[in-house]
Design a protein around this nucleic acid. Sequence first.
DNA 1: TAATTTTTTTAGCTTAGCTTAAATATTTTA
DNA 2: TAAAATATTTAAGCTAAGCTAAAAAAATTA
Lengths: 221, 221
Amino acid sequence: MITLTATEENYLKYIYQLGEAQSGLVKTNDLAYKLEHSAASVTDMLKKLADKKLLTYTKYYGVSLTKTGLHIAKKVLRKHRLWETFLAKNLKFTWDKIHDIAEQLEHIQSDELTDKMDEYLGFPKFDPHGDPIPDKQGNISIPNVICLADAKLKKQYILQNVNDDSAIFLKYLNKIKLQLNDKIKIIDKEEFDETMEMLINDKMRITISNDAAKNMYVKSI
Amino acid sequence: MITLTATEENYLKYIYQLGEAQSGLVKTNDLAYKLEHSAASVTDMLKKLADKKLLTYTKYYGVSLTKTGLHIAKKVLRKHRLWETFLAKNLKFTWDKIHDIAEQLEHIQSDELTDKMDEYLGFPKFDPHGDPIPDKQGNISIPNVICLADAKLKKQYILQNVNDDSAIFLKYLNKIKLQLNDKIKIIDKEEFDETMEMLINDKMRITISNDAAKNMYVKSI
DNA sequence: TAATTTTTTTAGCTTAGCTTAAATATTTTA
DNA sequence: TAAAATATTTAAGCTAAGCTAAAAAAATTA
């Protein structure tokens, strides 16, 4: 069993997340931007991880994870999302605070701990942001969602997933009292700037910008 | 608020624990032995920590923690013991496994997390090994115990505290089914090698070596 | 398609935290 | 109390993981 540093694990995690959107191929610069490191540092690390057979690296072209690399990336994500669930559900943290702490906790090395936490939490399938939690085998439940920005007028939806990248955005959701599983009815969409007017849980009327809508995912009902 | 690396925190923690026994003065070699590093590395780090005003370092003489250093050391110990409590009580880990995981968890940086965990666990005063958990202010409940090796014949005791330094010892305790808060009556003590014969909870008869007795602490009843 | 721009890599440096070997203090012991 | 043993520090060097600046490759555009 190979043990990686927190840094190496983060590389694999972000490569996985960036690759998820597309074919699995990730460019040096995109990673550098995500990690907030110089492209040169990223190149260095990619070579190192390629030597360890965790990814395949082709100069000037990009990287993609090997089977082993993918497995580790999912495990890190699994730990991250299990910890987020614990922080939110059990410790009553607000969701704008859990991400940063989970970024640390995801690197704790103990499979037994991970699995006991999973059991302790009742084998949750989604974390507090609505993101799927990989199970012990790495299986992921894929929720059938669309972006709120693409939601149709007059239709009804349930808020399933929010983007957890930005604490500012999550703080904003706290402020407007919008929560996961809330019922959303699209009342109006302004043509000019795509601002949306919505009815939440059949009683609260709110207006959100297109920027905000782009960070939310809903399931139609 | 200064943030230290896990390595720096470990130095402070061990200096605190080694110093506790005596006047607070800790020698380079003792630390080197505890940390399993070369004495030269330790000297380097001590200088660095002295520069940061976390300890006072006198060449060839030794180190002792400053007020700030002491505060941080206690905080690390607090986190370590809170996590051990969580692992044992909530996740049902056996006590020989919790130390190594807590060694990692103790470096998670979030005062809010520490305090929420404390509350979640019901503000425990002692961890699963019987060691005191410093409270938010750094106060420590000192249990009134004596070493089992010094316990008197025919007298009755309660097992209050065990040494958690060695997983092998803790595994041994698991095997002989000895637990914290068990009632112990000393039946006999062999003169030759100080092996002790004891009655546990008025029913189970066991024999333990002096080496084992030295790692246990009891309160007389 | 040639020139320009962007992306990526290479080269050389920095810091943290370790190492061993050699030098210097301190302590022990004969 | 002088020699020997032990403890500690200094010196030099290593690796991981970052950096900047310069070079090279790839992509874009005129």
